[in-house]
Design a protein around this nucleic acid. Sequence first.
DNA 1: TTGAAAGCGTTACCAG
DNA 2: CTGGTAACGCTTTCAA
Lengths: 340, 340
Amino acid sequence: MRVTQQDIARLANVSQATVSRVLSGDARVETDIKDRVLAVISETNYQIDVRARSLRSKRTGLIGLVVKRPPGGLNDDPFFANLISHIMDFLAGRPYHLCVEMVSSASSQEAVYDELLRTRRVDGLILVESEARDERILRLQAEGFPFVLIGNPVEERESTIWSVDNDNVLAAKTATEHLREAGYQRVGLLAGPKGITVSDDRIEGYRQGMSGSDCDDLVWHCDFGFIAARDTASDILRSPSRPDALLVLDDFMAMGVVLAARGQGLFIPEDLGVASFNDSSLCDLFERGLTSVSLNIPQIVRTACGRLLKIIEEKPIYGPRRMIIPTELCVRGSTTRRDL
Amino acid sequence: MRVTQQDIARLANVSQATVSRVLSGDARVETDIKDRVLAVISETNYQIDVRARSLRSKRTGLIGLVVKRPPGGLNDDPFFANLISHIMDFLAGRPYHLCVEMVSSASSQEAVYDELLRTRRVDGLILVESEARDERILRLQAEGFPFVLIGNPVEERESTIWSVDNDNVLAAKTATEHLREAGYQRVGLLAGPKGITVSDDRIEGYRQGMSGSDCDDLVWHCDFGFIAARDTASDILRSPSRPDALLVLDDFMAMGVVLAARGQGLFIPEDLGVASFNDSSLCDLFERGLTSVSLNIPQIVRTACGRLLKIIEEKPIYGPRRMIIPTELCVRGSTTRRDL
DNA sequence: TTGAAAGCGTTACCAG
DNA sequence: CTGGTAACGCTTTCAA
């Protein structure tokens, strides 16, 4: 049988309420009583029952993260591994735990959000990879549920949504300009699924970076992941409108591009320049290094989680709702032609 | 204000107990009453409060996974991304969620396990990367807490521990023999931290595979992760006892070895053969492909999670407690010398 | 400062 | 088949 506060109370000759007070660090408990209770607690190895506490206090101590990928689609994807890793780092030592959920379709995603917030399984949510008109956001706002968006809320007015983001337009513009300056003429963009805001922002930045060029608008869409990118890149590289450089939505997809190029006997960076986003350690795995934009994920996560906990704990918050984390272009061999 | 079963009961003109029965799919409820209740439930958008349910039913619907890594140490590591991904795949659609925890030290690990199981935050645990004498296992067993080990329980007697594992001795032996057959003379092993059972088993297999060779026992230990492996490999490759082939504990670490070799101007597979474990998609990122042993992670996870849920739900279980998932050696360019 | 007691929203037992 | 009711273990208010 589990030890309860009731048991502690009996053993320490106090009321169960007092035990609760001691546990919650209530100041108005006589020191000797407190010591007596604490002694019994440590003797009995008592641990609070979080389920009962949750019911009473309306707090579960759980933060939720929902990822939308096809089954197995997270495999080896460094972005989520990083994200999850940094979130756990942040939460370690705090009274919060991370609950991760994967959904495969938009409809199941909404069902999961519904479940997650209506059932009060988690105290708050971190949203990633949002879409321009994100059902999740509307729903969470309507319910007044604590959440922080990692990404662009895409709102006309002054934002009412807490969000942490990079300036993806600027980052993509800078990366595109870097490719042009490196001597590539036909710079293309391998974007993500249509409607994903981070992808849309980078398309915008790419177009800004291409202004003044007589090159067509070379934008392709593609699902997340290594395999999808490889297959799409194979088609792109065989097409008549073949680009001589590709800016890719993330490193993992860029690795698909590298494989596709290799498969067609194209050399990087001579025949094809490649740059991408995230600056994960995959960049060092490509022989000559992969040029990539660092998003500063640790800082994104710290900012987002910190803010989320404040919202949950209803602490006063100062500063803007939309927080921008700076990016940095890390130039490596995949855009450094030696033939020029 | 949240909608409760009490509210539903009032609106449907039944007792709250009946609402509970309808929700739990109790057969003995008149069809028309049931329909009335269900109608109100869908009208009101009612969702059960999992906290109250947890308190009553003693089930949280949460499965725990605790990972021991230094802060940021999970970054880009495909093994955990895969593991988490497959666990989520398995859990999707079932009434269970995944709770992930990261700890940085042994002592914090024990504290976390204590917290996790004593507070009944999760219904069961999946253990990975166990050590020969694993405190976690002893503790969980003593408490009668449901858990499944992914790895080797290392017990003398008939095992009392549910575990899912590969035959790592055999797998390492096979991989070592493959390297020798490929023409390498001085085959070494880059193992993981000392005491980790999966690492120990592979050391044993390596030694079996090297029997009959006049080569020294070339085993090095190294922390998990890309960076640690790169640094250790740099030392190894510079040492007088330099091997001409390395079997590496996992792909991610193997990538560190690839980088170290590249940094010293060594060619793979000509100057150094490299083989590893996990067969993640990283293997295709190396120019000529990385030879790797597939652990069949999806099957490991399916087996482990399936078993864990059965234990939690106290369903009858047949078959052995220790379940072995077959491995497969996937030969690629990193062990295929063209100079022979 | 301490104790008694009222819930929190369920589940499940026991009558009817 | 249905309703009443007692827990589940805790937090918090209200009296003492």
